[in-house]
Design a protein around this nucleic acid. Structure first.
Length: 243
DNA sequence: CGCGTTTGACCAGCGC
DNA sequence: GCGCTGGTCAAACGCG
């Protein structure tokens, strides 16, 4: 997660979750199960890709820290639409001293966006997924897409970024409208689509597209001090004590 | 007044 | 070529 600290690009589309209360409900372990077959893909975009055909078992992370971070990677592994790209494992987070709130999202589960299914698959490893989203060792001409579903009453998940709604559309085969959001940060072209799972309205299906080219506006970075030089440097957005 | 949401219109891609 | 569908635009509107 050091890439975010460097201010280049946020390796993941979430960066904080300060306002939601369900901190103990992070991500679902069920995303560990890959969807066995490609989603049906009709004309246009992802009209029918919102949630059928994958497992629905929920898992609530008992604690934050390593498990949480690992789950982030798991999520990336299963949901990024980039092809598997060999890459080094994510850098370790150095010691530091700030608590970053854990995501407030309820158990999230992987969703295979049609674009993913049509595009040919997933990263082959956690490292590859992390690197792919972080922009390392990969073809930057590809589009980063990641989708998951979250059991939540709120359709708007506080992922720390500021989103501007620019469209709403009712989609075929779904009673629930799809909402379109764009990152409101100038120059950032990240978009997300949010809709309720047509099969289970308790779940919100969120699909991110693109990589933020800025730091999370709500992120407070922690600093680490180099033992040799005594100089401080921005270390990241995760608190080491959470590991 | 600025910013965000709403919503109908428009456009592009795809299948037939 | 036509119709359907999803994605985006932009004017109108609401809210703080």
């Amino acid at each position: 997660m050091a890439a975010a600290a460097a201010g280049a690009s946020t390796p993941f589309n979430f960066c904080r979750h300060g306002s939601h209360a369900e901190y103990d409900a992070v991500f679902s372990g069920s995303w560990m199960a890959r969807r066995p077959s490609a989603a049906p893909h009709g004309g246009g975009a992802s009209g029918s890709g919102s949630g059928s055909g994958y497992g629905a078992a929920s898992y609530v992370a008992p604690t934050f820290g390593a498990a949480f971070r690992q789950q982030h990677l798991d999520l990336l592994d299963y949901l990024s639409d980039d092809q598997g790209v060999p890459a080094p494992p994510p850098a370790a987070v150095p010691s530091a001293s700030y608590v970053t709130p854990a995501p407030a999202m309820a158990p999230a589960e992987p969703v295979v966006p049609d674009a993913v299914a049509a595009g040919g698959g997933y990263p082959r490893s956690v490292a590859a997924a992390a690197a792919a989203v972080a922009g390392e060792g990969r073809d930057r001409t590809t589009t980063d897409k990641i989708a998951f579903r979250t059991r939540s009453d709120d359709e708007i998940l506080d992922d720390g970024y500021k989103w501007r709604k620019y469209g709403k559309k009712s989609v075929k085969n779904s009673p629930n409208p799809r909402n379109y959001y764009r990152c409101s940060t100038e120059g950032c072209n990240v978009k997300k689509r949010v809709e309720r799972d047509k099969n289970d309205p308790r779940y919100v299906v969120t699909m991110y597209e693109g990589i933020h080219n800025h730091v999370c506006p709500g992120t407070v970075y922690y600093a680490a001090q180099d033992a040799a030089s005594g100089r401080f440097f921005v270390a990241g957005i995760s608190h080491p004590d959470l590991n």
